[in-house]
């Protein structure tokens, strides 16, 4: 066991942890974006709310969620530990530093990461915490006519404090009662300050992943003449462009359409 401890205490071991947690968070982003695309569906948040409920109540996903929170914490803490060590490695700074030898994002991962961490805290307290614990998120009832496939939505006040979700079918109508996170999203995303904050955060994410994704592969040692170009293509186009754009599009879309 001590050998593992030694491994993960080494500079490379710490980097390994950064890389693994980072990549894990990257995969989460794909899932998260995929689910959130439901926000673009003009269904009064029906799909989105059902999806949110699924994420918070399906046990395997619950486990992964906690892994995710842990990853964020570990990623941040190790980043801090590594940064402190890196600072110590150069006690006297240069008077003059040229910026030409490395990409901007690669040299500012700590700053980018700190902004993202702040974003995650705000983002999670707004949605995740309120959704799960604060009781500030109300319920909604979706009534779908199975014959015409038309859905209407009305607020719902649960009778029991432990109520989470119900799906019933009566008279050719499917009634789904679920927490209305969508309403919360809608109200947030119509606030200009909030929207700007989100867009900035997604810009930050873009820069963070532009370096981070391919850097993780380098740290893991997965470089290859044939595959590394593919990794850097994915890192740039998927993680630094499509994903941040996708996320940023949501608040902007809501702001301009509501």
């Amino acid at each position: 066991m001590s050998e593992f401890k030694q491994t993960f205490n080494s500079s490379l071991g710490k980097k390994l942890i950064m890389a693994l947690t980072g990549l894990f968070l990257c995969t989460f982003l794909i899932v998260h974006l995929g689910g959130n695309l439901l926000l673009f569906k003009n269904d009064n948040g029906f799909g989105f709310n059902v999806y949110a409920n699924f994420l918070t109540h399906f046990p395997p996903i619950e486990v992964i969620a906690y892994l995710l929170y842990l990853s964020i914490l570990v990623h941040a803490i190790y980043a801090l530990v590594l940064t402190i060590k890196n600072r110590k490695a150069r006690p006297v700074r240069y008077a003059e530093v040229s910026s030409t030898n490395a990409g901007w994002s690669s040299k500012n991962m700590g700053l980018l990461g700190s902004i993202l961490f702040l974003f995650i805290v705000i983002h999670m307290s707004d949605f995740w915490y309120n959704y799960k614990y604060s009781g500030k998120v109300g319920f909604i009832e979706y009534k779908t006519n199975l014959a015409t496939d038309e859905t209407t939505a009305v607020p719902y006040i649960p009778t029991s404090p432990n109520f989470e979700k119900s799906v019933t079918t009566e008279n050719n109508f499917e009634i789904v009662r679920v927490k209305d996170l969508h309403a919360r999203v809608e109200s947030s995303f119509t606030n200009l300050i909030y929207v700007i904050f989100y867009v900035i955060a997604m810009g930050t994410l873009s820069f963070h992943l532009k370096h981070g994704f391919q850097s993780a592969f380098r740290t893991l040692g997965w470089v290859h003449r044939k595959y590394t170009p593919i990794v850097s293509f994915i890192g740039t186009w998927l993680f630094a462009v499509i994903i941040p754009l996708g996320f940023a599009a949501m608040p902007v879309y809501y702001y301009f359409t509501r």
């Binding site: 110590k88 030898n101 380098r218």
Partner: peptide
């Protein structure tokens, strides 16, 4: 070699690529 490198107090690699460039 990595153990000795760590013991000497060098920082960690963040794959910035400055080393390769210089």
């Amino acid at each position: 070699m990595v153990a000795q490198m760590d013991a000497e107090g060098f920082g960690n690699c963040t794959n910035t690529g400055a080393c390769e460039a210089e």
